[in-house]
């Protein structure tokens, strides 16, 4: 599968199943555009011009590459040679009006070299549905991972073979197939501690029901926090890095408990050989010198909730008396960032139908001095007045492109900033396991309520259908856990033809549930925006490389 796109003056070609990414000139792009839908052997036939007897894996003499496959008697022949020949002639005729024949041949040879190096026209293996699994012996699913399809022979041809909904009605059979995927040791390595089901703000778009998750207000006792840390260590198997997020509601309402929990976890590090990473998400109201000093010392990341312009922010983020919070929190955030020494911080905003022009909010955050920014589309039922509309989606995609252009411009001016969803690591990104498994919710990551109950994700804590157990008895709803073991890229039918599948890993299950009522559902608007963000992120990478 190939995704070719043009953005911000760059021609990009993404070879989905190898992960290769190429920036190409206009001529090469025109050839790829014409051939991107054809199978590998047809592409080879067209590019070589040897359509009378095309060897699907043999390299023509014109290509110089160390990795060309050896010619053997097992190569298959392409049968529709006349069609291939016509396609080649049609392509050359079309291009000849704009390019010299020698240039066209040179471009085709360059594409041939990439193809023989498995950097273009890579295909999924037809039997295993995933090229990596069959070709590389160092990736052994059978020894390390469970995959129902491999061990139990479950069909992957579109049949509906699984009904793992745990009896709770959160899964529809039509959207998925059975393929469990995850570490066989069942390790839990991350907990989101909802230390406060209470909030000093009353943001109307809050997924947490303005802080108390549609229940009664509660703060997590210190003893529960310590038990949660013990639970995490006990269930972490051989994992070295363990993560604890302090979340809410507003976690600073339970600040002494946060500090004691961190101290307790740190006391276990030398005894257990574990290393804890802590994060904090706050609305900023209660930030003071003590919070700044402690987070600087102990938190690997702090997420600061700020939506942008004052009018934007104060539209939704109000206190219990309906007063906006912008004027209170901005100076506190600026001071926290000014004193920041160790870990990262993100100013994280939400944009809605009311500010689809969110780029202006990003620019405002830059004017305030913030340079690590995240701005996320609201996730809500479609009947909410702030929900994004189909017209908004079109406009937001334009905003994303303008944002990417601004990032390139400011980097060239030596005034760079980061935008969370454009930070694609091409040198040291996630491995194929991680790309298939996704975020790990419900398996290696769980949320803990103030009373110690366990849920698969912080965004599903208000729904009793997702109660998984508690930190004293462990996972008791094993059927639901099994559902989450099946929540991966391989199980999602809708993702199979999507070029971005190995960047989003099937997307956020909680978002899918909130928009479709099905954990395996597809948040169409979310997918469309994600793909645009990936294109923007890749175009920014192209600019970085070509500017050198």
């Amino acid at each position: 599968m190939i995704h070719a796109f043009q953005l911000l003056g760059y021609n990009l070609v993404l070879d989905v199943y190898s992960g290769s990414i190429h920036v190409v000139d206009d001529l090469v792009y025109a050839i790829v555009e014409r051939l991107k839908e054809v199978p590998r052997d047809v592409a080879l036939a067209v590019l070589t011009g040897d359509s009378s007897s095309v060897l699907s894996d043999a390299a023509p003499a014109v290509i110089s590459s160390d990795s060309l496959p050896a010619l053997t008697e097992n190569h298959s022949f392409t049968n529709n040679s006349a069609w291939n020949s016509n396609l080649r002639h049609e392509l050359i005729d079309t291009l000849s009006s704009r390019y010299k024949k020698s240039d066209i041949e040179e471009a085709m040879n360059a594409l041939l070299a990439l193809t023989y190096d498995d950097k273009l026209f890579c295909e999924k293996d037809p039997s295993e549905k995933w090229c990596v699994f069959n070709q590389h012996q160092n990736l052994s699913i059978s020894n390390d991972l469970e995959c129902d399809r491999k061990h139990r022979g479950i069909q992957t041809d579109g049949s509906e073979s699984c009904s793992r909904d745990g009896g709770n009605g959160v899964v529809s059979q039509k959207n998925h197939e059975s393929c469990a995927f995850g570490k066989a040791d069942g390790a839990i390595k991350a907990l989101c501690l909802n230390v406060a089901h209470a909030c000093n703000l009353a943001c109307s778009y809050c997924f947490a029901g303005q802080g108390n998750y549609k229940g009664s207000q509660a703060l997590m006792p210190v003893e529960t926090g310590r038990r949660a840390i013990d639970f995490l260590v006990e269930h972490s198997a051989a994992r070295h890095y363990l993560e604890v997020d302090f979340f809410g509601g507003e976690p600073l309402l339970n600040w002494p408990m946060v500090k004691e929990t961190v101290a307790y976890a740190r006391s276990l590090e030398s005894k257990t050989g574990k290393r804890f990473r802590f994060t904090l998400t706050t609305n900023g109201i209660l930030i003071d010198d003590d919070v700044i000093d402690f987070t600087n010392r102990e938190m690997d990341n702090v997420v600061l909730s700020l939506d942008g312009r004052k009018a934007t922010h104060d539209r939704f983020r109000v206190d219990r008396q309906g007063r906006g919070s912008y004027d209170t929190i901005v100076p506190k955030f600026q001071e926290l960032v000014r004193q920041s020494t160790g870990g990262t911080h993100y100013v994280r905003g939400t944009f809605t139908h009311a500010n689809a022009d969110f780029l202006n909010d990003v620019i405002h955050l830059l004017e305030l001095g913030f340079t690590q920014i995240s701005m996320e589309p609201v996730v809500s039922p479609t009947d909410m007045p702030y929900a994004l509309t189909s017209d908004d989606i079109v406009f937001i995609k334009q905003q994303y492109e303008e944002l990417a252009s601004l990032m390139i411009q400011r980097r060239r001016e030596d005034r760079p900033f980061t935008f969370f969803h454009y930070m694609i690591d091409l040198e040291k990104g996630p491995c194929i396991y991680k790309r298939i498994a996704g975020c790990g919710s419900g398996t290696e990551y769980l949320a803990v309520t103030p009373t110690g109950d366990l849920y698969p994700c912080h965004q599903l804590v208000d729904n009793p259908a997702f109660l998984m157990g508690n930190i004293w008895d462990g996972i008791t709803n094993t059927a639901l856990q099994d559902t989450y073991r099946h929540l991966n890229l391989l199980s999602r039918k809708a993702c199979r033809d999507c070029w971005a599948q190995l960047y989003c890993s099937g997307g956020c299950a909680a978002n899918a549930f909130h928009t479709t009522g099905d954990l395996f559902g597809v948040d169409e608007n979310g997918c469309e925006l994600f793909r645009k963000r990936m294109e923007c992120g890749l175009a920014i990478k192209a600019a970085e490389v070509l500017d050198v």
Partner: peptide, 15 residues
């Protein structure tokens, strides 16, 4: 252009 932190899309993460 060979077998990590928990991610929350609301998967740039960096052996």
């Amino acid at each position: 252009l060979r077998d990590c932190q928990t991610s929350c899309q609301s998967v740039n993460q960096a052996q």
